[in-house]
Design a protein around this nucleic acid. Structure first.
Lengths: 146, 146
DNA sequence: GACATATAGTTGTTTATACAACTATCCAAA
DNA sequence: TTTGGATAGTTGTATAAACAACTATATGTC
């Protein structure tokens, strides 16, 4: 018997991801206001390239939980914006290694500040130990389903 | 001073909604396997109509946190699938009242069971009091940003 | 009653996601 | 060395979200 029987109505928010949608929308608005001309999805790709530059599209798929066509098109758009460059790997010519341009490197600091600011607004008034529990629960959910 | 300063990396999952994305993908797969020919987004509209039939598109916007064009097109698609019908209101002819068809009424029980089952899988191993805290935190996040 | 303004819904455009089908390259086993 | 399977990436198609611009109807005020 499950101990997790949901009351109606509680179910809806969990499935639709109300909270993360609200965070993403707020972050997008802040990017726009700051004149940062990137979508949240593009930013999420840059985010991983800032951590490690020159990784393959497949590694970006794994890091961002997207499928290959999604990454192909995000990289297409980032390339069009001159924020990344595809360089086909010498070691394995099936692979594209994705490199940040100087322009993208300049976005890092400002956009990360805006992201932190957004999360602080989102979590205002929530005690740290409750944030911790929430994060752990969401991680378990992800692990249960992946 | 904020007590919610995020360590790098924690930030990412919150913004991208990894957990709710995983739930939605699992639910969609289960719908497909069961031969339920609806998307999660369409289901989320039906969900509110099952609670109250014959509401306006604007009310669906509020209930589902979507903008008007999104609801216009979801209702377009639901109408094409013969799951809902637009009926223009006598009282205010700007409004469309959206009514479930018999076919949509038949989907309710099975799809709600699948949704509950999915959430139970997602939350397996999470004690109820931690689910409660998680829900409260996500609600505060939403309220902080809306 | 006429007009300004607000509200309900639609359409156009861009970006993104999911799935299936495809091409190119790599690698291992016969 | 050939061949068959696996892997990396692309393309086609359908659905959806966000934003701006639009039409039609309602309402409050003069």
């Amino acid at each position: 018997m499950s101990n997790n029987h949901f009351r109606r109505g509680e179910l809806y928010s969990f499935i639709t991801g109300k909270a993360s949608t609200a965070i993403a929308r707020r972050l997008q608005k802040k990017f726009n206001s700051a004149g940062l001309n990137v979508t949240i999805e593009q930013w999420s790709v840059l985010y991983h390239l800032w951590k490690q530059d020159g990784i393959s599209q497949q590694e970006l798929c794994n890091a961002t939980f997207r499928d290959k066509p999604s990454i192909t098109r995000l990289v297409d758009n980032l390339e069009r914006l001159q924020l990344v460059k595809r360089v086909s790997s010498d070691a394995d010519r099936r692979m594209n290694l994705i490199y940040l341009t100087r322009q993208a490197q300049k976005l890092q600091e400002q956009s990360m500040e805006i992201a932190e600011e957004t999360l602080n607004e989102a979590l205002e008034g929530v005690p740290p130990e409750r944030i911790e529990i929430c994060k752990e629960v969401l991680q378990i959910v992800y692990d249960n389903l992946k």
